[in-house]
Amino acid sequence: MRGPLLRKVGAYAFAIVFILAGWWVTAWLVNSPALPTPGATFGVLAANLPALVPYFLTSTGRVVASLALGTVLAVPLAQVCARSRRLDGLFAPVLYILYPIPKVVLLPILLVLLGLGDAPKIVLVTLTVFFQVLVAVRDAVRAVPEGAVLSARALGASRWGIYRSVTVPATLPAVFTSLRIGVGTAIAVLFIAEAMAGSTGLGYFIMQSWSMVNYPRMFAGIVALAVLGLVLYGIFDAAERRLTRWRS
């Protein structure tokens, strides 16, 4: 038990050293206030933290709300569609056409319709998350072994019982996998939305600092956005691991 754990900690320590070294060398070569060295970053962060916090909280709230909303809408639809040939026949072509569209191009329309506040950003990121989760869960439900469904029915499971005991637990890991993979895109889309319109959120904070030529402030915003992505990624990764202990 100790061997693998130590090796894992070692691997992560190495990765961190590797990244910091790469960062340091790049910063040293670039030699610009837009890219401080790792050593200087703490000072930059500390100096800009009070200004940063409200923007950070706004962005966090938007991402979390969108991830939750997208998941809550996508999972039941995917579950029901994948189990019903008729519904799936209806929705599959719709999904096929809409899925590849980069949802971010809808931003201008949403800005016209919903203004400059939270609504257009949350709707846009929710749309992005929704399609990713929908497709992943639909595929996962279809991959559930037919024998498990048959034996549940034979054991007396109702339609609801099949969802609760078979297709939902079997596909829960896929929900978190798709969220983990989708969180990067979600944050990227949020950044674009915040940078383009309104005066709230980290996207705005970063681009405003850029236009003020306050590079340390800009960099502090970038680090904050990176941390947000990393933390969410870690949470989904942990949830996924916990929920897949039954897998080989």
Binding site: G147, A148, L150, S151, A154, L155, S158, S165, P169, R247
Partner: peptide, 25 residues
């Protein structure tokens, strides 16, 4: 009791939960 070709166990449930499944349904 019906045992399908692939046994139809629930891999996400423990052995005990698998054995209980019918009674719970």
């Amino acid at each position: 009791a019906f045992i399908p070709q692939d046994l139809g166990l629930f891999p996400w449930k423990t052995v005990l939960q698998n054995a209980m499944a019918g009674l719970r349904f």
